[in-house]
Design a protein around this nucleic acid. Structure first.
Length: 419
RNA sequence: GAGUGCGUAGCUCAGUCGGUAGAGCACCUGACUUUUAAUCAGGUGGCCGAGGGUUCGAAUCCCUCCGCGCUCACCA
């Protein structure tokens, strides 16, 4: 009688010899079903076929499986059951449990890397009275004792920068964020953003750090920097391309937005490319819209897209040589945005004006625009040193590093409709 | 939110032209005493996603709803 027993580390064969079977062992073997968790005591040896095997002298039932497992050969393929009962998916599908083992290792690796660079891991409020830090629609909840509505955070950014004002030498947070928006293969209503802020750096330093994080994490879980994803080959040992948004637009859409001086001209340039823009879209929004429509899909190999328009980035410092741009980059891999980084805006006067512009946009109907955050502006008035900051979409990074093409395959319990 | 495909046993799936529910695995019983998913025989197991309609008769055709996937839109 031969049997394989499994755990997360692999399988081992057990057997009972037919010449000297233990009565208690035979009795127990008769009771064991697929999915039971059992303890085995016995001597280890190799069988005639050379397989390492345990000659069983004692079996203990540690946990009896009351529910049957899915059939072994086909496994669990129903996506609904995989997501609603992830534990079953993990038991049945080696790739699934490997994904979550790798997810943990990626966190561990990045955490160690950032700590080694002198950053501190911190925690900031998830319940916030002002929605800030990103253009997104929030979830709203209510605190009974305070009789006050609160927002689930869409980003930890503003609180993290206040910790830099306070004097921490660099901070990071693996932040669960919540955005009340659509869902698809790259969006879950709750997702994890890794945000980090390091004083006396700028967005160029953040780009270096992005490359280092991706490489270190990839090496840790794949043991190599040459990986395949979505049928394409990626060599992460090569430097990531660094390009400007305008150069990408010139390349893929044939328009030089830096040569365009009016909002109207910019809108017309977008329309000419069949890119839809609002009637009152300014130069920056038109430029960003063209980039998203014409360029993103081409950015397969890791590409750091720098120097975005200013009007849509109220927390980012104006570009050192071009007043219409900000020192922002977004890294792309396989055509997907993997994060967002700034040379942070540190000037409180400028910050207040940018918030005021956001408030105006909000009053004009933009639900995603930021609210005025007086506490944050006041913090800046105490002095935020020149600081580089970056957010990375952990779920998307994990997708890329584990070969999964749906965000729901890397989140253990993705958001599901009530059944 | 829009388009589209799907939903039959615990799991993987058949189910023809509309004729009243099937297989394999799992589980139980018995035989077998051994190997790399799968030994043999027998058995248990179904609100055919839900509701309505057409029909003598619906898993099958029609409508509504629920859930999941994919594509698009918004976003990270």
């Amino acid at each position: 009688m031969f049997m394989d027993i499994y755990d997360a580390t692999g399988k081992v064969q057990i057997y009972t010899s037919k010449e000297h079977p233990e009565a208690s062992v035979l009795e127990m073997l008769d009771m064991v079903d697929i999915g039971d968790i059992i303890g085995i005591k016995g001597t280890v040896r190799r069988t005639k076929r050379g397989e390492l095997s345990v000659n069983t002298q004692e079996i203990t039932m540690l946990a009896k499986a009351l529910l049957p497992l899915p059939e072994k050969f086909h496994g669990l393929t129903d996506t609904d059951t995989k997501y609603r009962h992830r534990e079953v998916d993990m038991i049945m599908t080696p790739e699934t449990i490997q994904t979550f083992i790798k997810r943990s290792r990626i966190y561990e690796t990045i955490r160690q890397l950032l700590i080694s660079k002198g950053l501190l891991e911190v925690e900031t409020p998830i319940l916030q009275s002002i929605k800030g830090g990103a253009a997104a629609k929030p979830f709203i909840t209510h605190h009974n004792t305070l009789d006050m509505d609160l927002f689930l955070r869409v980003a930890p950014e503003l609180f993290l920068k206040r910790l830099i004002v306070g004097g921490l030498p660099g901070v990071f947070e693996f932040a669960k964020n919540f955005r009340n928006e659509g869902m698809d293969t790259t969006h879950n209503p709750e997702f994890t953003g890794l945000e980090m802020y390091l004083p006396y750096t700028d967005y160029n330093d953040m780009a270096d750090l992005f490359e280092e994080i991706v490489r270190t994490a990839c090496q840790a879980v794949n043991g190599t920097l040459q990986i395949e994803y979505d049928g394409k080959k990626f060599d992460l040992s090569k430097p990531f391309a660094r390009v400007t948004m305008n150069d990408m637009i010139k390349k893929y859409a044939g328009v030089d937005f830096m040569a365009i001086t009016s909002d109207e001209e910019a809108r017309n340039a977008a329309k000419k490319l069949n890119v839809e823009v609002d009637e009152d879209a300014d130069w920056g929004h038109s430029m960003a819209a063209v980039f998203e429509a014409k360029c993103e899909e081409h950015l397969i190999q890791p590409t750091i897209v720098m120097d975005h328009p200013k009007s849509m980035n109220p927390l980012c410092k104006t570009h050192r040589s071009e007043p219409r741009l900000v020192e922002q980059f977004e890294p792309y891999i396989n055509g997907k945005e993997m994060g967002n980084a700034y040379t942070e805006l540190t000037n409180p006067l400028d910050q207040r004006e940018r918030f005021e512009a956001q408030v105006a946009a909000r009053e004009a109907g933009d639900e995603e625009a930021d609210m005025m955050d007086d506490d944050f502006v006041e913090a800046l008035e105490h002095g935020l040193p020149p600081t580089g900051g970056m957010g990375i979409g952990m779920d998307r990074l994990i997708m890329f590093l584990t070969g999964n093409t749906s965000i729901r395959d890397v989140i253990a319990f993705p958001t599901m409709r009530k059944k």
